[in-house]
Design a protein around this nucleic acid. Sequence first.
DNA 1: TTGAAAGCGATACCAT
DNA 2: ATGGTATCGCTTTCAA
Lengths: 351, 351
Amino acid sequence: MSITIKEIAEQAGVSRGTVDRVLHNRGGVRPDIAEKIHRIAEQHSFRMNKAGRILAVRKQPLTIGCLMPGVGNLFFDDVIRGYEAAQQELADYGVSLKIKNIKGFEPENHIAAIQSLLDEGCTALCLSTLDTPELCVFINRVIDANIPVIAVNTDIPGTRRICYVGSDYYKGGRTAAQLLSKILAPAEQPLHIAVFTGSRNIKGHNERISGFTDGLTAHHTAYSLIAIIEGFDNDEYVFLPAIALFDQHPEINCIYIAASCVAGVCTALRQSAMVQPPEHIHIIVFDDLPATKQLIKEGLIDFTICQSPFQQGYQAVHTLFNYILDTQEHPDEYILMNTFIKISENIDDNG
Amino acid sequence: MSITIKEIAEQAGVSRGTVDRVLHNRGGVRPDIAEKIHRIAEQHSFRMNKAGRILAVRKQPLTIGCLMPGVGNLFFDDVIRGYEAAQQELADYGVSLKIKNIKGFEPENHIAAIQSLLDEGCTALCLSTLDTPELCVFINRVIDANIPVIAVNTDIPGTRRICYVGSDYYKGGRTAAQLLSKILAPAEQPLHIAVFTGSRNIKGHNERISGFTDGLTAHHTAYSLIAIIEGFDNDEYVFLPAIALFDQHPEINCIYIAASCVAGVCTALRQSAMVQPPEHIHIIVFDDLPATKQLIKEGLIDFTICQSPFQQGYQAVHTLFNYILDTQEHPDEYILMNTFIKISENIDDNG
DNA sequence: TTGAAAGCGATACCAT
DNA sequence: ATGGTATCGCTTTCAA
């Protein structure tokens, strides 16, 4: 157990108030005294005691605002569950949450939503938002106003966010490729792949695709990409293009779905008049929305690669809390989730 | 934020000391007053504030004793890392750890080790130990002396331990079976399996095997079990029996290793004069010790199924801490880890 | 059986 | 610029 502020005060021959001011760089202390206090603190490798601090700062409780474009995208339900679990654990420490779940990717809507979180009194933010110039400018202004920000699920590299908590998309793609090469190994049949993505403007989706193709190459699996279809994370939207593709390309024997339109693509597949029976088509997807879980259990989908959405929410809140409480340490810039392979036997794990 | 003890005291017209006594069932309070206090607490759904409690009980700091038979078994290194990570996070709350890593499975040694942890002042225990009658009796006596106990990695059902934190071994076995059936699907060759286990007296290992055979049946994969070899978690020990088996049974085309002797078996395989080249043999194992990681990266092993040893240690300590702090709630009896499938692309995850 | 008071570690405000 | 003091929620003596 480390030294306490009180002890530092005694050793330095000053009051605890003065030590507090020095340790928080609040100014208003004679330089030589400040220097002395800093020295004593370092000598004894002083660490602020969390419990004490929590109790004392309880008067200005911490409200964390969480923003996500999860309306119509069930993926974020698990992230929200993670947020709420963390909140429950930290309730005793005065942490409360405001969750704002919005629809779509309009920059103005995102900016307005962030502003309204601030207006409602949030003093820290977990954001799943866009990386557009206007948002970056806005978010940096928020950060300058002393509101710490963590990027969740989607990074915002253009900003001075504390860190990114989320998936390693490229690694997910490579993992998918290796799985595919494993289940194909004995067959040695030519691979004709249909790729479905959310949008070519979403970095994570693109990384899943480049990871996938890089991985196929690395694992010496020959393939041809028949098409890359954008589904905009929408099961209904993707249905017709998928049907059309399957009808036009009966040689397709592998489907790689890098985004949230798994149910739509699978429905199309089942309804299309493909030459290949669906059993001989390999399907690898991402995430485990309820519809995807069901398809895994039915055996239509071979593997799904998950990014621990629950953990993303949970860890983001905890990291933010620790950051605010811990005057000293910064977390790692990238807090990456595990790349979690699921089949029906372990689909109900909540990794 | 819930009501505080102070407020309860005011409402009940008594002092905070009295409320404290009632809430901790310490006795020595007039029944009608106790009743009244309980009522008020329930009415306002009172929850003891953690930060306050931590600060106040800091004078008798919590020392958690951790016992494991990890000498010569690298598996427990990650469990220990998990213990230590939790300890670091909870250091501010007065938590310290005594880790006792012993060798082997002699009941007397385990009992002596537990006793010495207690002698050294531990007031709570995380135990990875045996489920023999003598240990159960001993552990129950410890529990009766008000030392809370959590079973880690290996359950001790014969005792009144708070809960079990560890792997779902059966599920791991089933997952292995399904993976195998997936990579075999196109081949349709008859499956001749060699099984390696630690000991037939270890419940977890047996469950991994029954899960595996049940899973093969469930997934309609025909197989024959050539042999089940006990390796006693020892790479050197298993080497010769493995060589002998491979020489005698060149038809073996699948190796299932349910325990810690992966490196030994693989070395034997490479040295044996099998008819099948190693590339055509499927190998599925458990856990990710350094040697196993290496073999995964080399491509000899297809899959390894991991049980999050780090999380086991980490969560055990956190659960114990919360249990002690939280006068009210009991954790779930079974805290089961995820069944984490790893291939070379995600082998360095620490799930 | 009960109350009063000191203390855990840190913060914040009011004096000086 | 600095010290003193009350406070956060809870526990724990010590008296009464």
